[in-house]
C-alpha cells in the first residue's frame, strides 16, 4: 500500500548553486503526482531528494524535512540505504544491468535483501514483470537474455519491474518516457495509471500532456521554487498563478 509524503522547507544545493528553494508539498497516498517545469527548474533534484539520492553527489547539500509515511527520512540516525530500500526509483534513461539476465535484473533488489529461496524469487519476478506489462514478451527468455538485449521501451519496463519487485511504498519516476518512442511511452503511461491503485507515484515530466493524462496532482516548478501545486485539472484549466498559466499555455519553457 502506498504512503503519503510531506515535504517541509526543502532547500537543496549543488556546491554554491541553490537548486531548490523552500519547497513545501503534501501528497496523499495512492495518487499520481506529476512534477512539471522548464529544464533546469530543479524538478529532477526534487524527486532525488525524496529518496536521498541527491546526497550521492559529493557536492550536494540539503536542509528541510521530508516525511514518507510517518517517518522522517532526513532524521539523524536514519540510514539512507534503509530509505532507498522502501522507495523505488525509475530513471530517465533505462539502466538495466547489462551483465545480468532479465530474471536477475528483477531479482536484484530482493537478493540484496536476503531473499534467496527459489520459489519466493520466481513468484516475485513473475508478479513484477506482469505488473510492468512485460511478462508476456519475455517469459520464454527470462534467464537466457541479458537485460541490455531488450528494446528501449522494454528496458524501461524492466527497470520498472525491478523497482516494483521490492514492493516499495513510493515509486519515483524521473522522466521515465523521455528517451522512448510514442508507442512505448503509451505503454508506460498506461502502466502508471494502473500502478496508482497500489502505489504512491511521483513522476517528473517535461511533457505537459503526459502530466495531464496520468496525474491526479501536479506541481509546477520554476527556478527552484514550487510555484503552484494543485489538482491536475485545476492546474491545466484555471491556474491561480500567472507564471503557471504562461507555462502551460506555452508562452515560455
Amino acid at each position: 500500500m502506498g504512503v503519503g509524503i510531506e515535504v517541509r522547507d526543502l532547500n537543496a544545493w549543488f556546491g554554491k548553486a541553490q537548486i531548490l528553494k523552500e519547497v513545501n508539498m503534501t501528497v496523499g497516498p495512492n495518487a499520481v503526482t506529476a512534477v512539471i517545469g522548464p529544464s533546469g527548474c530543479g524538478k529532477s533534484t526534487y524527486v532525488r531528494c525524496l529518496n536521498r539520492m541527491h546526497e550521492t553527489n559529493p557536492d550536494a547539500k540539503l536542509t528541510g524535512s521530508v516525511k514518507v509515511g510517518d517517518k522522517e527520512i532526513y532524521e539523524s540516525g536514519i540510514d539512507a540505504v534503509d530509505v532507498r530500500r522502501k522507495i523505488g526509483m525509475v530513471f530517465q534513461k533505462p539502466n538495466p544491468f547489462p551483465t545480468m539476465s532479465i530474471y536477475d535484473n528483477v531479482a536484484a533488489g530482493l537478493r540484496l535483501n536476503g531473499f534467496n529461496k527459489r520459489h519466493e524469487l520466481d513468484a516475485a519476478v513473475e508478479g513484477s514483470l506482469k505488473m510492468a506489462a512485460l511478462w508476456d514478451e519475455v517469459k520464454d527468455v527470462l534467464k537466457k537474455k541479458s537485460g541490455a538485449s531488450l528494446s528501449g521501451g522494454q528496458q524501461q519496463r524492466l527497470c520498472i519491474a525491478r523497482a516494483l519487485a521490492v514492493q516499495p511504498e513510493l515509486l519515483l519516476m524521473d522522466e521515465p518516457a523521455s528517451a522512448l518512442d510514442p508507442i512505448s511511452t503509451g505503454k508506460i503511461e498506461e502502466l502508471i495509471f494502473q500502478l496508482k491503485t497500489q502505489y504512491t507515484v511521483v513522476i517528473v515530466t517535461h511533457n505537459m500532456q503526459q502530466a495531464a493524462r496520468v496525474a491526479d496532482y501536479t506541481g509546477f516548478f520554476l527556478m527552484g521554487k514550487l510555484i503552484e501545486f494543485d489538482k491536475t485539472e485545476k492546474i491545466f484549466t484555471t491556474p491561480s498563478d500567472k507564471r503557471t498559466e504562461d507555462y502551460i499555455t506555452g508562452r515560455f519553457g
Binding site: T56, K86, I87, F97, A108
Partner: peptide, 21 residues
C-alpha cells in the same frame, strides 16, 4: 556509467553492494 551506480543505490544497496553489482 553513473546510471548503473544509481540503479543499484536506488534499490537500497550499501556502498559495497553498489561496487560489487
Amino acid at each position: 556509467p553513473q546510471s548503473q551506480r544509481e540503479a543499484v543505490l536506488a534499490l537500497g544497496a550499501t556502498r559495497w553492494e553498489m561496487v560489487r553489482m
